[in-house]
């Protein structure tokens, strides 16, 4: 079973625990500027939305890379950047339609979400359940359920 990150923006408080957990895992420091997941705030903080790579099955970044530095982890399904192969040409950052692979000037390589090898630290750190790591087949289950209730009404208890 593959799992994927599920994001429920309605629960996000914009605390950035996820950004710190991500940067600690990948750089050894608390450094939101180097986080691969980002929180975006709208309307003076009335809405905060986490956003990161969704691990496309046919990944633009992987196909665009001229040195084959990006490969698919067959266990987690994550597209991973091999830093020793990456030459920092940034073609993948142009190819990605979502902007979720980015160049890191500190080391001259690109960085993207790699699902932390199957135990994503962002989900572990999130205090509100806005980011969870769930069965990839059913990422829409809770949302479908809530819409089912909103469309047809919750049954009254007997």
């Amino acid at each position: 079973m593959q799992k994927s990150l599920l994001i429920d923006a309605g629960k996000c408080t914009s605390c950035l625990q996820c950004e710190m957990a991500c940067s600690l895992e990948h750089t050894g420091a608390f450094n939101p500027a180097r986080s691969r997941i980002k929180i975006f705030e709208f309307n003076q903080g009335a809405r905060s939305i986490p956003y990161t790579c969704t691990q496309c099955a046919e990944a633009w970044c992987l196909h665009a890379c001229p040195v084959e530095a990006i490969t698919k982890n067959m266990v987690t399904g994550a597209m991973e950047v091999n830093e020793s192969t990456c030459v920092g040409c940034k073609v993948c950052t142009i190819a990605c339609p979502f902007g979720t692979i980015n160049y890191n000037p500190d080391n001259g390589k690109v960085a993207k979400c790699d699902l932390c090898g199957g135990a994503p630290k962002c989900a572990e750190a999130c205090p509100t359940g806005a980011i969870t790591y769930v069965d990839a087949d059913w990422t829409g289950y809770d949302r479908m359920r809530s819409w089912a209730v909103r469309t047809h009404g919750e049954p009254t208890s007997a």
């Binding site: 408080t13 605390c15 003076q44 009335a46």
Partner: peptide, 19 residues
């Protein structure tokens, strides 16, 4: 009240966003 909001790093989120 619209929602609550956290400061940096905060797992309490006592801040209020209102209109």
């Amino acid at each position: 009240l619209i929602t609550n909001k956290a400061c940096f790093g905060c797992t309490i989120a006592c801040g209020r966003i209102a209109h």
